[in-house]
Nucleic acid binder design. Sequence first.
DNA 1: TTGAAAGCGCTAACAG
DNA 2: CTGTTAGCGCTTTCAA
Lengths: 328, 328
Amino acid sequence: MSVATVSRALRGLPNVAMSTRAHITAVASDLQYVADPMATRLATGRSRTIGCVVPLLGGWYFAQVVAGVEAVCTEAGFDLVVQSAGSAERLGDLADDAPTLQRRVDGLIMVDYALTDTNVAAFRTAGIEVVSVGAATGGFCTVGIDDAAVGDMAAQHLIELGHTRIGLIGSMRTEPFRFAVPELRASGFRTALADAGIDHDPHLFADGNFSVGGGAGAMTSLLAMSNPPTAVFALSDEMAFGARRAAERAGLDIPGDISLLGVDDHELAALFELTTVAQDPSAVGVSAARQLIARVDSEHNDDVHVVDRMVLPTRLVERGTTGPVHSA
Amino acid sequence: MSVATVSRALRGLPNVAMSTRAHITAVASDLQYVADPMATRLATGRSRTIGCVVPLLGGWYFAQVVAGVEAVCTEAGFDLVVQSAGSAERLGDLADDAPTLQRRVDGLIMVDYALTDTNVAAFRTAGIEVVSVGAATGGFCTVGIDDAAVGDMAAQHLIELGHTRIGLIGSMRTEPFRFAVPELRASGFRTALADAGIDHDPHLFADGNFSVGGGAGAMTSLLAMSNPPTAVFALSDEMAFGARRAAERAGLDIPGDISLLGVDDHELAALFELTTVAQDPSAVGVSAARQLIARVDSEHNDDVHVVDRMVLPTRLVERGTTGPVHSA
DNA sequence: TTGAAAGCGCTAACAG
DNA sequence: CTGTTAGCGCTTTCAA
């Protein structure tokens, strides 16, 4: 047996006699032989590895995305290497250091970064395909949800319940992650309000920093207003959790005194009876990974329809934190 | 310039003239040259990659551990590939297929698996070092917390408050993950009770499956007893969250009517005012990764003291869900 | 259908 | 201090 024949046999290439192949596979499994991946990668020039970069590995949302990505990677026989880049600089380094990733990963999934065409081009010239997760920002593949629609759904729901003074808990920080997301959701929300002929008091905004504690602080400041809102829309469930707590501490009944609406359908949202606009981040991860793998692996080329923008569904989940506006 | 010189210069090896090195680095950065990692790996026989296997990528606990691991990996210049193996079979495959991992990773961090010496030996012979996270189970390195002490702390706290009928929400499933953990915590808890001269009613146990929903169900069944407990100890915060909700739904006041105690100090525990035995899973990940890297990388050999068992601290965080026993 | 041989791009002796 | 020369273990023409 020559190495060439063994190589062909083990990889299932044609032009190998049945008997030879059988023999080779038998011996291989007997010896527990497995082709050295590094040698293979060096020879083929492809690493069968994809990278996934997230701002924060420990967060609920990102963990879900990564879980989705991982599932399709292992299924497709790809290794998944994860990296977190929490600061804008770290991300900048990553983009500048595209050559560093060269040959280490066939493709990259960038989660919730404000990637520019230039960044992506840098990766491409380094031979790295990239698909991003989040808001669409350039001429490259992005999978995500319709964040403006999220804001719209939230507004519609609250409007139907008769609310007109609606607080907004969001975030003004745009770096390093989910950069466009808060603004998109907020503008969808404001547009819906405007379309309904409600003019929205811009003071009804508070920064919740996409954290539980931030949400609580934001709610507290909203409640401290001379003319507080009858409902508040938090741009994430975690902020809504905090907001809920703050409202309860202030002695308010939800939804009797004030309605509360979140985004995500976090695993604990049901427990809080939180009405929310649900998304499925792990499905986002799955789709992103499929797109990427279709682009870098000819074997999976026709498994999925390659597109530049993929929008996953969101839906309103009505639970117990929203109700009709109370009479003032 | 010969390739050898370039190689030496770029890797910071000795025996390179200052001027030569300067020139080479200059040209390299000018050309954005980076050594091909696959070629390096093939030549050196080390992948500078470590693998991390978890039962579930999306869970809070595991996400924290992975985050810790990732932080030290990138700092040490190692790639981190993650894989989830949720079922016992998938894990078995992994152990049997140790040869598959061969040369792909220098080391492996197995999170909360019931690894046997045999499993570990299989990895070792494949040239893969492994450190596990969780309960100590064999002659290999394990980093974790003292789960029996966790149970003990919980029991002490509740005993001091005067409780004697204490419910336990845990889990009887031992596969595939955290296999020994529930039993260790439970036995630490029972021992403390026994030492205090309290004989514990074995019926005061309910399976909460380490999930929010399970915790709620478990609490409900505990509450349905003819002689319900005055306090309950949930083996995880997520189960405690569910338990709390169930108690509230039953119209009970916490801690007035019933005390509740969890384990983890989940990011939302503070929000729930949950008294809990805190651990720091990301610190566990950090330590595990350091141990592993010290074992596979001579450069980092003396950065950390290599041990076989590493126990990280836990502490009781008293918040609002535990209080003195109410008079019956 | 199979084998021989030339790389893939690096590292590591060994000479010089 | 620097260059030469073998590999590392595969894949891939090209012949046989």
